[in-house]
């Protein structure tokens, strides 16, 4: 950045009084802006905000009392377990994806250009493949006649197939598989935003690669890491297909529980309550964490 060389006197650029023409132009611009933004705005208000608000509002209309559906939800150990399990799976998935993502993104961002572009394409391709397809792949791997069981029996670790499908571990492995590419891509962006010369400054001052990583790169990447973590956490917390396919009925999470209440039990109050809890936790996580990320960002003062 070049140092700015003093401001022009304000009065030269902006005459004190707004002329009628300027006001008219401004009104016209505001009008044009609204016209162009209105179809999308209306669509979001009518088909997103109102329906979701209706769902949440519906939970407060129970004849048994204002918060009766929430009392119903939290008085059951089973339902509390579902919420906790969802939270646990999302948290573990986030932590593993973060650890794997940081290391991989670091190596990718340090690779020579042609290697880097191949590695990025290889990370994008799984992302473009659907959730169902990718979860299904893990059913083939973890099933009773799956590859892993065949392999374990072949090398003689076990005689009979081990039941790996429909466990919490299976859900977590598939979720990590789902979100690691996303994390890698987000973190490559974050790491490439760290200026080269800052990293070089560290090494010119005697910091070896490990110290440079710990004392310079990691602190500068932290706001980006938080953004990536929030993305993965909320997506895991609200997922349906993966826990449905790999967790089944034994590993009920909020998403599968919502579907079960609505479409199997036809309990719309219960389903709406689950939906409301998911919305609150998701939005709260995003708001709190982005605020923390902003606080930690040294570039903004």
């Amino acid at each position: 950045m070049v140092e700015s060389g003093g401001d022009y006197p304000r009065s030269l650029i902006e005459p004190g009084a707004e002329t009628a023409l300027q006001r008219a132009t401004k009104d016209m611009k505001r009008f044009a802006g609204w016209i162009m933004a209105s179809p999308a705005t209306l669509a979001l208000v009518i088909f997103l905000i109102l329906p979701v608000a209706a769902t949440i509002g519906y939970t407060f209309t129970d004849p048994d009392g204002l918060i009766a559906p929430y009392i119903w939800y939290f008085e059951s150990a089973f339902r509390r377990t579902v919420l906790w399990r969802t939270f646990e799976i999302a948290a573990i998935t986030t932590i593993i994806s973060l650890a794997v993502g940081v290391v991989t993104a670091y190596v990718v961002s340090k690779s020579p250009p042609w290697v880097k572009s191949i590695l990025i394409v290889l990370a994008v391709f799984p992302l473009l493949t659907g959730v169902v397809v990718r979860s299904f792949a893990w059913m083939i791997i973890l099933g009773r006649n799956g590859i892993l069981n065949n392999f374990l029996q072949w090398i003689g670790i076990t005689d009979a197939p081990i039941g790996m499908l429909y466990t919490q571990g299976a859900v977590i492995v598939a979720m990590v598989y789902l979100f690691v590419p996303l994390m890698i891509l987000v973190l490559i962006g974050v790491l490439e935003n760290i200026p080269d010369d800052v990293v070089q400054a560290a090494s010119s001052l005697g910091a070896n690669p490990t110290s440079t990583f710990m004392q310079v790169i990691l602190p500068l990447a932290t706001p980006g890491l938080i953004v990536g973590a929030v993305l993965v956490f909320t997506a895991s917390f609200t997922s349906y297909a993966t826990p449905h396919l790999l967790g089944g009925g034994q590993q009920m999470v909020m998403g599968t529980f919502l579907h079960q209440r609505a479409m199997v039990a036809f309990d719309w109050v219960g389903a709406s309550t689950i939906a409301a809890i998911m919305v609150v936790i998701t939005i709260a996580t995003v708001l709190v964490m982005t605020r923390i990320a902003r606080k930690l960002n040294p570039m903004a003062v």
Binding site: P51, T234, T238, Y240, L258, H259, A275, V279
Partner: peptide
């Protein structure tokens, strides 16, 4: 911000 599954259910 709104979970997709909640969006589907609300619609």
């Amino acid at each position: 911000l709104v979970p997709e599954i909640v969006m589907g259910f609300s619609l």
